[in-house]
Amino acid sequence: MKKIRIIVCAKQIPDPEAPLSDVSVDAENKEIVVDAPQVINPFDENALEAAIQLKEDTDAKITVLSMGKKVSDTVLRKTLAAGADELILLEDNAFEKLDSHSVACVLADAIRKIDKYDLVLTGRQAGDWDSGQVGLILGEMLSLPCISLARDIRIADGSVAVKKTHPEGYERVRARMPALVTVSNEVGELRYISRTRMLKMLRGAASISSWNSEDFDVACESLMKAEVVELLSPSDMGRDCRFIEGATADEQAEKLAAVFMELR
C-alpha cells in the first residue's frame, strides 16, 4: 500500500487549565496575561494522537505544521517525540495575532508548498480564542472535502471514514482523500511522552525546518490581524451565595426543599 501523508496543524498556547487566579486581562494593551507554561493546544494533541494511531495501522508519514510569531520548538518537539516524522515551524513577525482567515491562508500556502498530502488534521478549536474556524477555512482554501468534529478516523482505499459527532449521536461519513478533518477530544488524549523521550528529542537531531514568509509563497493579498476593539475581564460571575445551614442534614434538606418549592 502506498504511504499515507498526514499533515497535522498544531498551535502553541498558554496552558488552558491554568486557574482563574493566574489569568489576568491587560485591558490597556488588549492582551490576556496568563502566568502559565506554553503547551500544545489540547485539541491539536488529539489530532496528533489520531494521526499516530493511523500511522500504527498503515504506512504513514506525519508532518506537523505550527505557525506563530515565535514558536518554541521545546514545546513543539513533543510532537516528534510522540511519533510525528517532521516538524515545520512557520515563524514570522507578520504572523502575529492574525485572524482565523489569515492563519488559514498561511497554513494553506505552507501546505501547498509541501505539495503531497492525503490528510490534513486540525483540532476542532484552540483553547485560547475558542474560535473553531481555522480547520474548516483551511479545507475550503485547499478545496478539500471537510469533515468536522471527528471522534474516530480510519483510512481505507484512498478514502477516509470518520465518525463525527452529531446532535443525535454520531454520523458515519466518508470522503475521498485528500481531505481535511477537524478532530474532537473523543479520539483520545495524546499518549504520554516521558521526559527521557522528550529530552532525547530536545538534544538529538530532529527533522525540523523553519519557514518564514520568504521561504514560501504566502499568496494572501494581505494578512489581517484580529482587531480587538476592547478586552474585558469577564463580568463578575460571582453571586452572593446563601449557605443553607442547619443543625442536622435533615434540617438542611428541609430548607433546601423549601427553596425548590419557592422557585417553582
Binding site: 489569568v23 483553547g127 489581517m224 482587531e227 474585558l232 469577564p234
Partner: peptide, 14 residues
Amino acid sequence: KPVSGGNAISVFKC
C-alpha cells in the same frame, strides 16, 4: 465573544 475559555471577553471588529 468570550475567549481563553471564558477568562476574558473580547470585542472584535472585522
